[in-house]
Write a protein that binds this DNA or RNA. Structure first.
Lengths: 159, 159
DNA sequence: GCACATATACTCGGATACATGATGTCCGAGTAGTCGTGG
DNA sequence: CCACGACTACTCGGACATCATGTATCCGAGTATATGTGC
């Protein structure tokens, strides 16, 4: 899995702690973890295309969450970065085997494909059940000063 | 996910239908689906290192299942090909953030890492619950002539 | 006819190229704020 | 003093390199079979 997923998840979480209505530039978001700003910007574009964050150009511009954290699931972020295709994509090699029919959709027929898809659906269901709000609540319970620290860092970090 | 996983799964299934004690060469296994033989051979080496198949060189040599199909899970095959690392590997970017401790194992502390791992464990559990024998039984129920067809193809295919 | 040594053909195994996609970088289009100027 | 216009600095967005990994290929080491030969 792409490393951008980890960056995107942490960045969305940090954005949820930003001042309401405040946009945070990719440079500040990247400075948080010493990430390459231009590349993080690229990942943020994917999040923007997926409707997870909204972007505003110009001074005082940057990114902010486009929806409430309750409406952003881990699956949303993963799908935005990794793409909608499933990890195990059955190429339908049975079509090349004996008795292979060119017109059959082997993703539906192939038992192996079904089994792999079942596992992948379980994974997706688990991710879809976790919202950004839930993650945030857990972090705040364990580390109560995190929201203040984050806002502070956004305000004071040198670019 | 690597395409070799699909090849390995189908190939193991086909091997389970081979004559008992018979070894099938990589060339014959690849001809089944018109796959590049040398590359499939490479994947089979990974399965052999994982103890899923055993290999014998020389004429009448090839691969055969090293264990009973009941003892081979989908997770075994996937792990043999893809490696044991989890898909979402938390690089511990929190360590670079404010208050990051160099010695902390952030895979245990980071809430995001925990959530992603929980989903991945669900995926692995699902895969570990499916054995090659189960897959084979389902296929035989739906397509009763598959075992005979497979043995026939192994015997008659031209290399 | 039988046993043995030899030659042969076939197999895996790892070392070696190639292609694709992830990773990283750069510059241009556009906007908000700022400064200067004129009324 | 106020309004307006130009300018500047800052931001995203996409186009352009670079690199790691998956994909594909080839040749050598080793073995079971077949063959030929001597007894």
């Amino acid at each position: 899995m792409s490393e951008g997923v980890e960056w995107a998840l942490h960045t969305c979480l940090n954005l949820s702690w930003a001042e309401p209505g405040e946009a945070v530039s990719a440079a500040r978001l990247a400075a948080f973890y010493r990430l390459p700003a231009a590349y993080l910007n690229k990942q943020m574009q994917a999040l923007a295309r997926a409707g997870i964050v909204s972007s505003t150009p110009g001074p005082r511009g940057g990114f902010r969450l486009a929806r409430a954290p309750e409406d952003i699931t881990l699956l949303d972020v993963v799908t935005a970065i990794e793409g909608p295709e499933e990890a195990f994509r059955c190429a339908g090699i049975l079509r090349e085997g004996p008795g292979g029919e060119p017109d059959v959709d082997y993703r539906e027929v192939c038992v192996i494909s079904q089994s792999m898809r079942k596992a992948e659906l379980s994974w997706r269901r688990e991710l879809a059940g976790q919202t950004l709000a839930g993650i945030r609540a857990t972090v705040e319970r364990r580390h109560p000063h995190t929201p203040g620290n984050t806002r502070n860092r956004f305000a004071n970090v040198k670019i």
